[in-house]
Amino acid sequence: MTALRFLALDSGLVEAWRRGRADANGQTPERQLSDGGGNPCRHCLDDIARDAPMLVLAHRPFPGPQPYAEVGPIFVHAEDCPRYGETAGKPGIFLRREVILMRGYGPDDRIVYGTGKVIPTAEIESRAAALFEDPEIAYIHLRSASNNCFQCRLERG
Results as ranks from 00 to 15, higher is better:
Pro91Asp: 03
Pro63Cys: 05
Asp46Ser: 13
Ala78Phe: 02
Gly104Gln: 01
Tyr139Pro: 03
Ile124Arg: 06
Leu9Asn: 13
Gly64Asp: 15
Asn147Cys: 04
Cys44Lys: 09
His141Met: 06
Glu125Asn: 15
Asp47Gln: 14
Pro40Thr: 00
Gly12Glu: 15
Pro63Ile: 01
Gly26Arg: 03
Pro135Gly: 13
Met54Pro: 03
Pro61Arg: 02
Asp109Val: 11
Ala8Arg: 01
Tyr113Phe: 09
Ala24Lys: 04
Glu155Met: 15
Arg110Phe: 06
Pro135Arg: 14
Pro29Arg: 12
Val56Leu: 15
Ala58Gly: 09
Leu101His: 05
Arg156Tyr: 12
Ile48Leu: 10
Pro135Tyr: 08
Asp108Gly: 08
Leu4Pro: 03
Ala16His: 02
Ala49Thr: 11
Asn25Met: 07
Glu136Gln: 15
Asp134Asn: 12
Gly72Thr: 02
Ala3Tyr: 10
Pro65Met: 11
Glu79Pro: 03
Ala3Trp: 09
Lys90Met: 13
Val99Asp: 14
Glu123Trp: 09
Pro63Trp: 10
Ala69Lys: 06
Gly38Val: 03
Arg19Ser: 05
Leu33Val: 07
Met54Gly: 02
Leu57Val: 00
Ile74Glu: 01
Phe94Leu: 02
Leu33Glu: 13
Leu7Val: 13
Ile100Tyr: 00
Ala52Pro: 04
Trp17Thr: 00
Arg50Tyr: 12
Arg19Tyr: 01
Leu9Cys: 11
Ile100Lys: 00
Gly116Met: 00
Asp51Phe: 10
His77Leu: 08
Arg143Tyr: 04
Leu57Glu: 02
Asp134Ala: 10
Ala78Leu: 01
Ala24Gly: 05
Asp134Pro: 06
Ala24His: 03
Arg83Met: 12
Ala58Lys: 14
Ile100Asn: 00
Thr28Asp: 12
Arg31Asp: 04
Ser126Met: 12
Leu101Phe: 06
Pro40Trp: 00
Asn25His: 11
Ile74Lys: 01
Asn39Trp: 08
Val76Ile: 10
Gly37Thr: 10
His59Val: 02
His77Ile: 04
Asp47Glu: 11
Asp109Cys: 14
Asp23Leu: 02
Cys149Phe: 05
Tyr84Cys: 06
Tyr105Gln: 04
Leu55Val: 04
Phe132Ala: 11
Gly85His: 13
Ala128Arg: 12
Ser34Leu: 05
Arg31Trp: 06
Ala138Ile: 02
Gly106Asp: 12
Leu45Ile: 00
Ser126Pro: 07
Phe62Pro: 05
Pro63Asp: 07
Leu13Gly: 07
Thr28Glu: 15
Val76Ser: 10
Cys81Lys: 03
Cys41Trp: 04
Glu155Pro: 08
Met54Val: 02
Ala129Leu: 10
His59Trp: 10
Pro82Val: 03
Leu101Asn: 03
Asp80Arg: 13
Ile48Asn: 04
Lys90Asn: 08
Gly157Val: 01
Pro67Asp: 08
Leu13Phe: 12
Ile124Trp: 04
Leu45Gln: 00
Ala128Gly: 12
Arg31Pro: 09
Leu142Ser: 08
Tyr84Val: 01
Phe75Asn: 07
Ile48Trp: 02
Ala78Gly: 09
Arg60Cys: 08
Leu142Trp: 03
Phe132Trp: 14
Asp23Val: 01
Ala22Tyr: 08
Cys152His: 02
Asp108Thr: 07
Arg156Ala: 15
Glu125Pro: 10
Pro120His: 14
Asp108Arg: 10
Ala52Gly: 06
Ala16Asp: 05
Leu95Ser: 11
Ala16Met: 01
Ile137Asn: 02
Gly106Thr: 09
Gly38Glu: 09
Gln66Trp: 09
Tyr139Trp: 08
Glu70Pro: 06
Gly104Phe: 00
